[in-house]
Design a protein around this nucleic acid. Structure first.
Length: 103
DNA sequence: ACCCTGACTACCG
DNA sequence: CCGGTAGCCAGGG
């Protein structure tokens, strides 16, 4: 049963990620909140780290609360810049301007 | 059940 | 939004 719940969790997380508009970014906490699990931000990260295994989703549009890019995901910056997202430095997205409002 | 781990976060300072 | 600290909770061994 625990496995079943995980599968549903994965589905919910990926569905939420799929809603992030192009050129916008969301935080792990935001995604967790969207699926009604605001305490499970870390789990969101875990699922996204394996997202490519489940299918293709815009996981590059998810960053941490400070706009920091995900580790072990070198292409993330390039993918975001291609959508017009500006960076304040090598590793941080300008959250003030590009964080998705959830609508 | 216990312990460790992590693509996290809220809270200082 | 930097750095350190302390909660957090599902997974895997």
């Amino acid at each position: 049963m625990a496995a079943v719940m995980t599968e549903r969790l994965i589905y919910e997380i990926l569905s939420a990620v799929e809603e992030i508009p192009e050129g916008r970014v969301a935080t792990y906490g935001q995604i967790a909140r969207l699926i009604g699990r605001d305490k499970n931000a870390r789990l969101v990260g875990k699922v996204l780290s394996r997202a490519e295994y489940y299918g293709k989703y815009p996981c590059h549009r998810v960053v941490n609360h400070a706009g920091r890019l995900a580790p072990h995901f070198p292409e993330q910056r390039h993918l975001l810049e291609d959508e017009g997202v500006k960076f304040r430095d090598e590793t941080h997205v300008d959250m003030k301007k590009y964080q998705w409002d959830g609508t």
